[in-house]
Structures are given as structure tokens and as C-alpha cells.
């Protein structure tokens, strides 16, 4: 589904991605973990297309997308969410989602016909709103949502683009236990429908959700495997997980 080949990106002397090679299989939830500063967000940028690698390749469904811009990658079927919530605050939940549907369907260089008359856009938007648990909040402006709800909308925006691969950058960031639990359910429900590359700090969530886990340390993938293998991997333990896993 997604293949990263020897991706390299440095900021000054710091190699944030130091030859990252990684494969995400279709239909899976693939988690990417690693200590702070390991280069996780850089990797998200490289995959989403907001950062350009110095060398290496990004292959999506067998196609080299390294040279595509961020919006072109969305049209190819790869969408992201942000670590810091990034939605359209003045639009309602439904309008936010309809916008993502609009970006996918047909030309948006349409100057005359009111969007409000496009039933199909809003029908799809409502379906996604329900899917991410915001069905009853669809008419509220995004800025009126709670933190957890906004995080759900963040994921919904990615879904509404029709992406086949969702890149979720710390979807549980700043969440309380109740919201986290809902987000885990939401992501679990996506399994099989879309492929997910999940970057997350919440180890409970990662080990419950992931089919495979890759561990990133200092810009390098030091291990990839099933959750049990990662848990047992001595290298991973010493590099990063040790105490957290033992507990």
C-alpha cells in the first residue's frame, strides 16, 4: 500500500529522517512509535507531501508519488490529520466535511451554482459525520466543538477526502481517557475499510489497535513487527519502551 524507501531529510546537522524504509500493508493499522524528537512528525510531512525528502522514494499503491505536492497526494488517495487540531473554525461540522468531499468530486472551479444546492455533497458529509460520532453535532460551527470532538472532525476530514490511506498524526493528543477510548473505537472501526498509518504516543492505544508497529529512533526505523514482537524486542526495550512496557 505504502512503501517508504531510504527517505532522508535533515534540518541543518540533524537528520530527522535518516534513511527510513517502511512498508504499510493494505487494510492494516500500522503504528509508528518513537521517543520525542525521533522524527515522527517529519516522517508524516514526508509522506503527506508537505516536506520534500533529500533522497529516497515514497511509493503509494505501487506508484512513485515522491514528486507530488500535498494536494495531489490527496487526490491519489492519501490524506492526513494534524497533531494540532486543524479544521475550518467558521464552518459547521457538516460544511467542513462537505468541503473535503467537494475537493474530491468534480471541479471546484465552479463559480455560479450554490454549493448548498448540491445534495450529494452534504449527504456524504453527514455520513462521515455519523461515522466519526458527530452526527448530532453536524450543524455546529467547528469552533464550538469540544477538544475531543474536534479531534474526531480532524479524522473525519481525512475520511471525507475518500482517502484509502489515512495518516493520523497523534489523534489522541491532549485527550482525556473517555475521548481516547472513543478515538480508539473510531480507528478500530476503520480497519479493513481504509489503511491507517498511526503516529501515536499513547501506548495502550497503539498496542490495542496496531497490526504492525514500527519503532523510530533518531530518524531510523530500528524495528518493525507485530505488537508482541515489538514488546519482546530487546533493542526496542533498551532504546525506548523499556519501563513503559514492563509496567
Amino acid at each position: 500500500m505504502l512503501e517508504l524507501k531510504a527517505l532522508r531529510k535533515s534540518f541543518g546537522a540533524l537528520a530527522a529522517a535518516d534513511g527510513v524504509t517502511l512498508e504499510v500493508r493494505p487494510g492494516e493499522v500500522h503504528a509508528l512509535i518513537g521517543p520525542n524528537g525521533a522524527g515522527k512528525t517529519t516522517l508524516v510531512g514526508l509522506v503527506a507531501g508537505t516536506l520534500a525528502p533529500e533522497s529516497g522514494e515514497v511509493l503509494f499503491e505501487g506508484r512513485d508519488i515522491t514528486a507530488l505536492s500535498a494536494h495531489e497526494r490527496v487526490h491519489a488517495g492519501l490524506a492526513r490529520s494534524y497533531q494540532v487540531t486543524s479544521v475550518f473554525p467558521e464552518f459547521t461540522v457538516e460544511e467542513n466535511l462537505a468541503l473535503a468531499v467537494q475537493a474530491r468530486t468534480g471541479s471546484s472551479f465552479s463559480f455560479w451554482r450554490p454549493v448548498a444546492a448540491e445534495q450529494a455533497l452534504f449527504a456524504q458529509a453527514r455520513a462521515v459525520a455519523t461515522q466519526v460520532g458527530l452526527g448530532e453535532r453536524a450543524g455546529l460551527p467547528a469552533r464550538a466543538l469540544s477538544h475531543g470532538e474536534r479531534r474526531a472532525l480532524e479524522v473525519g476530514l481525512g475520511l471525507a477526502t475518500g482517502a484509502r490511506l489515512l495518516l493520523l498524526d497523534e489523534p489522541m493528543a491532549g485527550m482525556g481517557p473517555e475521548d481516547s477510548r472513543r478515538m480508539v473505537e473510531l480507528i478500530a472501526a476503520l480497519r479493513g475499510r481504509v489503511t491507517v498509518l498511526l503516529v501515536e504516543h499513547d501506548m495502550d492505544a497503539v498496542f490495542r489497535l496496531a497490526d504492525h508497529i514500527s519503532v523510530l529512533v533518531a530518524g531510523r526505523v530500528i524495528a518493525t513487527g507485530a505488537p508482541d514482537e515489538i514488546r519482546a524486542n530487546p533493542q526496542v526495550r533498551s532504546a525506548y519502551l523499556g519501563e513503559e512496557l514492563a509496567a
Partner: peptide, 9 residues
Amino acid sequence: ARAEAIGFP
């Protein structure tokens, strides 16, 4: 940034 990330050029 968000507009770009949902596919708008």
C-alpha cells in the same frame, strides 16, 4: 494548510 491537506490546490 488544512485546505491543501484535503486536496485543494
